[in-house]
Amino acid sequence: MNIGHTTADTVIAAARRRAEEAGVKAAFAVVDTGGNLVAFSRMDGAPLITIDTAVGKAHTAVSVGLDTIHLTAAIQPGAPLFGTGLTLAGTRSFVPYGGGVLIRSGDAVIGALGVSGAPASEDDHAIGAAAIDTAVVAA
């Protein structure tokens, strides 16, 4: 089961509202379970780097099967993923920072949302998680 375009648009609209409430200029990407881009939006004034980073965070979340905020500890000095950092290589990037949030319909993962633009990746995660909690998610 994969996220549909209408649902992806609903998730992005909810994320935009959350970012606006937080005073954050961000980019938002929704991917399906295969990591394929379904919907994308970048707010006016969001830095250009947020484009690839949002897509990468969404792709990373769906690829590893968890919200990317849970990778933060693994990228710290001495941890197993230290040095991976932000590896941008296009739409299939591994971005192990908060802001990639799984989207579920019931218990099934149907895609992921990537948020990039807040001063801290924990804030990107909070925006994404709140958006998914308020959006009506259906396959």
Rank of each mutant, 00 (worst) to 15 (best):
A13L: 05
H59Y: 15
P77L: 06
D133L: 06
H125W: 00
S105R: 08
G117M: 08
I110V: 15
F82L: 02
V31L: 03
V95H: 05
D107R: 12
G99H: 00
A8W: 00
Y97H: 08
L71E: 04
E21V: 14
F28D: 09
T33G: 15
A27Y: 06
I51F: 08
H59D: 12
L71R: 07
P119R: 08
G78R: 02
G65M: 08
T134Y: 04
A89D: 10
A73E: 05
I75G: 02
D123H: 10
A138R: 12
A135D: 08
R17F: 02
A13S: 11
A46S: 13
A13Y: 01
T50C: 13
T68Q: 01
G83K: 02
G4V: 12
A130N: 07
V115L: 11
L48G: 11
V64Q: 03
G83P: 02
T33K: 12
I127H: 07
T7G: 15
G35D: 07
G100V: 05
M43E: 11
V95F: 05
A130K: 03
A74D: 04
A89N: 13
A120G: 09
G45E: 00
M1P: 12
E21L: 11
V38F: 01
A46T: 07
T91R: 13
Q76A: 13
G4Y: 03
G99S: 04
V137E: 06
L86S: 14
T7M: 11
K57N: 07
G128P: 03
D67C: 11
F40Q: 15
M43I: 08
V31C: 06
A139P: 12
I127Y: 03
D124K: 05
I132Y: 01
V38D: 01
F28T: 14
P96V: 05
A139R: 14
S105F: 10
Y97E: 04
G4K: 13
A126P: 01
H59G: 14
A118P: 06
A22Y: 05
G56N: 02
V38S: 03
A129N: 00
T134M: 08
A130F: 00
A129V: 02
L71P: 09
P77I: 06
V137Y: 06
I132K: 03
R92L: 07
G45Q: 00
G34E: 04
E21W: 01
H59T: 15
V62C: 10
T87M: 07
E21M: 10
V109L: 10
I51W: 03
R104Y: 02
Y97V: 13
I51T: 15
